[in-house]
Design a protein around this nucleic acid. Structure first.
Length: 910
DNA sequence: TATCCGACAATAG
DNA sequence: CTATTGTCGGATA
């Protein structure tokens, strides 16, 4: 969808309505067409609402409810529509529309039901310019700005339109010119910002455009811009003319900018009428209200058309950035400021320290971490200056001029995206200017805005392949701090290139690291850099680095570099103000050379001093659990269930199974009940085709089964995975079979973390387990007790992986590693009694139609079931330590100790 | 070759 | 919405 096309269509639509060429009845269809809705849908809807029934409402299910209004009645019509939504056909119904819309041909009103928002305009004529209000109807959510960012949003949207227009006017510009286009955009942004904030004289840029770029078709705009850009790079107006500036006026008017922004001579695109108009409009915006930190990421999302769908999704919110910066260095600086009080020596020392700080973001994007870090450092420095000035003033001493010691060249960044880097540099300049103004308030001599003295040290590159020591070279006396939110990509999500990045990043380590998340490579490099330079790093990252299988992979890397985790944040859900959020649980973790500096674990409300932060980010010794292929305790073997990989064609609902049996009674022998986590926990019944090789011919004789096998084979042969494709040769079997024809104990692979116990149960022979559950075939009854115990839940939650934040069971990580004191026959037999007791308590509830989910929901959990579990826990725990444990911390502490003893694998405590 | 798990995806309430 | 579990490919052993 192209913004220009939409606007033009809507402009035309408005004209047609005004001229009468388009009836109000036809209006909503034309809107749909303008937004490129599928032709099918529009036609279908048109047929449902023929023009003869003009009085009726037009409902586009889930999207739009439209009613034409009598002149002047738009507001009332919308109220009526709102009222019509109450009741059974109301907002809760499946087809409830997202938008209400009405117009009388002059006035226009719409309501976004989801957000309650109404558009900022009320004339139909303004619809085209504000088309974005309706975007959610077409699947593109709006950016929901915090109120203070309204100016940023407006500006970013406008620049997106301008960007599209320029691309339109330069159809031959391809990948080769992307860099030039990026530079062009950032330079324009600078000019517009400069003329609104006093860097240039008031509206110098816009006035120059108005005066020189007179051709309405845009044909002379390119020349004017070229002249301006060229002038800004050269100090002297004669030299400017010599360099090729054609306009004498431009050569004379513009100041010298420098700082590298205008240094390279890049191509300026040509303009057309629309691009010229949008540029003029952009220059008229209030650029002094822009937040440099947020604006960068917004502009970036908008320029990269392919990123508009998940607009700003991965942009780190300011509160989360602060969670990185504060514990890493801001708190320490602020403390130093507080302690310094009015002591000039101490304040000077602080200012000196700040000047030696280097900030490095090895995944800087458009630089919002760097910008915020810059701003916060400047604020502290400025406050120190203010205090020094006040002291001197009181002592009637000569006031000094305070020059900031913070250079933006001390802010280092790498990012693979060229435009992001340019934006980061630009944002740093803008922040520098803004912070200089703040400092000027306390200085006797204002900091001159131009020429720009230095530039941010931002380079285009791949942080996992480049040498960090080159990008951010260590200096004597410098305090280097690494920050950022590098990309997270679990194993299934990486491209070949990213896979290669990791191989390169881990080339000097021995071991295999393919199961680590992409972001782990940043941790490894940060630990390495920290070891060589003494730097400290902190990243926002996914919690999966500190759970399950990744722990034994990541921690040794960190530990080997003589590094430790300095502080961490408890897991929190990723969120920012973008409409669509990445679904991930995050933590913030710092890495630094091993020291005896204090460590902290932050929660949402509190900060806890920790004696250690272990590989799981818990205040406990540095013990971690590795995957074990077989149980370290004397437990029977556990198996993952059977993976069908059938596209669902081997699976049958109970209806389908019944029908199949009815149609073909002989199929009965090929149908078995199948259990995954859901079937067990929610008490559902599903069936699957389970055909022995020897029965294949008989099974295929049944047409309905033959058809399912054919479909299964088709799905499998389409797989990119060789072994799956190969298994299309035997579609009557599950792809991974570990089944044994015995009764088994089922353990769901994922289950809700709200439950106080893992839910396990016995299933009869003839039943099949899917790979969403584990199975212990022919199980001794006492094992049920072990798996149902609080101890086991605690262990699972500590060392297992997670799905979001829910328990994810694992044979290699949880079951096989679970340490059990050796059990006597007598103890086993008593555990068996406890197991039977729990089953006995469950029994009447299950018989009464309750599910395991209900039984173990903390809100409905029956008291007698809790009692049965408590008796079991008390008995089992007494076997461990002679009494029940006090709490989960004690349980975990003991289990870890026991694990260490049983495996003799104790990581050396820091 | 068999095994195991996930910056998610889907679906039921 | 909110809560909960499902599925498959790909890396590893």
């Amino acid at each position: 969808m192209n913004t220009i096309a939409i606007e033009e269509e809507l402009d035309q639509l408005v004209a047609d309505v005004t001229s009468g060429a388009c009836t109000l009845h036809d209006f909503p269809f034309r809107v749909m067409e303008a937004f490129d809705a599928s032709r099918n849908e529009v036609t279908k809807l048109r047929m449902k609402h023929p023009a003869g029934l003009a009085a009726s409402d037009i409902l586009w299910p889930k999207k739009l409810l439209f009613r034409a209004a009598d002149a002047g009645q738009v507001q009332n019509t919308i109220e009526d529509l709102k009222a019509s939504l109450i009741g059974k056909k109301g907002a809760a119904s499946k087809n409830a529309p997202r938008f209400l819309m009405s117009t009388d041909g002059d006035e226009f009103l719409a309501v976004d039901i989801k957000t309650g928002e109404t558009p900022s305009f009320d004339r139909l004529a303004d619809l085209a310019v504000n088309y974005d209000f309706l975007l959610p109807m077409f699947g593109v959510e709006r950016y929901k700005p915090a109120p203070e960012t309204a100016a940023d949003v407006r500006a970013a949207r406008h620049m997106a339109k301008f960007h599209d227009a320029i691309r339109d006017a330069n159809p031959t510009w391809g990948a080769d010119q992307i860099h030039d286009l990026n530079i062009f955009m950032t330079r324009l942004l600078f000019c517009m910002f400069a003329e609104d904030t006093g860097i240039f004289s008031e509206k110098l840029f816009l006035n120059t455009l108005r005066r020189e770029a007179r051709e309405v078709d845009g044909s002379d705009t390119q020349r004017v811009i070229e002249d301006i850009f060229l002038s800004l790079d050269v100090a002297d107006s004669e030299a400017r003319r010599a360099r090729g500036v054609r306009s004498q006026r431009i050569a004379g008017d513009f100041p010298y900018v420098n700082g590298g922004l205008f240094r390279d001579r890049t191509e300026v695109p040509v303009f057309n009428r629309r691009a010229r108009r949008l540029l003029f409009e952009a220059a008229e915006l209030q650029w002094d209200q822009i937040h440099a930190d947020i604006f960068g990421s917004m502009i970036q999302a908008i320029i990269h058309t392919d990123m508009r769908a998940d607009f700003g999704m991965h942009y780190t919110s300011v509160p989360n950035i602060m969670k990185v910066l504060e514990p890493l260095f801001l708190n320490s600086l602020r403390e130093q400021l507080t302690l310094a009080g009015d002591n000039i020596k101490a304040l000077e020392k602080l200012v000196g320290r700040i000047a030696h700080i280097r900030i490095f973001d090895p995944a800087c994007g458009s630089g919002n971490f760097l910008i915020i870090a810059y701003r916060e450092l400047r604020l502290i420095e400025t406050e120190a200056f203010r205090r020094m000035r006040d002291v001197k003033r009181r002592g009637q001493l000569a006031l000094a001029d305070y020059q900031t010691g913070i250079r933006i060249s001390s802010f280092y960044g790498v990012d693979p995206v060229d435009f992001a880097c340019e934006t980061a540099k630009l944002s740093l300049w803008i922040s520098q200017y803004q912070m200089n103004r703040k400092l000027d308030e306390i200085c006797s001599a204002p900091t001159p805005a131009l020429p720009l003295s230095d530039a941010g040290s931002i380079v285009v590159g791949n942080a996992l392949r480049a040498d960090w020591l080159t990008i951010c070279p260590p200096e004597d006396g410098a305090e280097i701090l690494i920050i950022g939110n590098p990309p997270y990509l679990g194993r299934p999500k990486r491209t070949r290139e990213q896979q290669r990045d990791m191989e390169i990043a881990f080339a000097n380590e021995n071991g295999v690291f393919g199961n680590l998340d992409y972001v782990a490579a940043w941790f490894a490099r940060a630990a390495d850099y920290a070891q060589k330079t003494g730097a400290e790093a902190a990243f926002v990252t996914t919690n999966s680095l500190f759970q399950g299988e990744q722990v034994p992979l990541l921690w040794p890397l960190i530990n080997k570099k003589k590094a430790e985790y300095g502080f961490s944040y408890k897991p929190f859900k990723w969120s920012n103000s973008a409409a669509k959020n990445a679904g991930v649980i995050c933590v913030i973790v710092s890495v630094r050379p091993i020291s005896n500096k204090p460590k902290f674990i932050f929660g949402s409300e509190h900060k806890l001093a920790a004696s250690n932060i272990n590989p799981y980010l818990v205040d406990a010794p540095d013990i971690f659990v590795e995957r074990h292929a077989s149980a370290i305790s004397r437990l029977p073997q556990i198996e993952l269930g059977n993976a069908a990989k059938d596209g669902g064609h081997l699976m049958l609902s109970s209806d389908e199974a019944a029908k199949l049996c009815q149609d073909f009674p002989s199929s009965k022998t090929f149908i078995r009940p199948v259990f995954g986590a859901q079937e067990f926990i929610q008490g559902q019944t599903r069936y699957c085709l389970w055909i022995r090789d020897s029965d294949l011919a008989a099974a295929k004789a049944i047409p309905a089964i033959a058809e399912r096998l054919r479909l299964t084979a088709a799905v499998r042969s389409a797989s990119p995975k060789a072994s799956t494709a190969a298994s299309s040769a035997w579609p009557h079997r599950f792809n991974e079979v570990r089944h044994r024809d015995e009764a088994f104990l089922i353990i769901p692979r994922v289950s809700s973390e709200r439950r106080p116990y893992l839910t396990v149960g016995f299933l009869p022979q003839n039943t099949v387990a899917t790979d969403s559950a584990f199975a212990i075939y022919n199980p001794p009854t006492w094992v049920f007790s072990i798996l149902s115990s609080t101890l086991h839940r605690v262990w699972t939650s500590a060392v297992g992986g997670r799905l979001k934040s829910d328990y994810r069971y694992s044979n290699t990580l949880v079951y096989n590693t679970f340490p059990i004191a050796s059990l006597s026959d007598e103890q086993r037999s008593q555990l068996e009694d406890h197991a039977l007791n729990i089953l006995r308590v469950r029994e009447p509830y299950i018989a009464g139609g309750k599910t395991i989910a209900w039984l173990y929901n903390p809100e409905t959990l029956p008291a007698d079931l809790v009692g049965a579990h408590r008796e079991l826990d008390d008995f089992l725990e007494t076997i461990y330590i002679g009494r029940p444990f006090k709490d989960d911390d004690e349980r975990l502490g003991h289990l870890f100790k026991l694990y260490a003893r049983m495996t003799k694998k104790v990581a050396k405590a820091a």
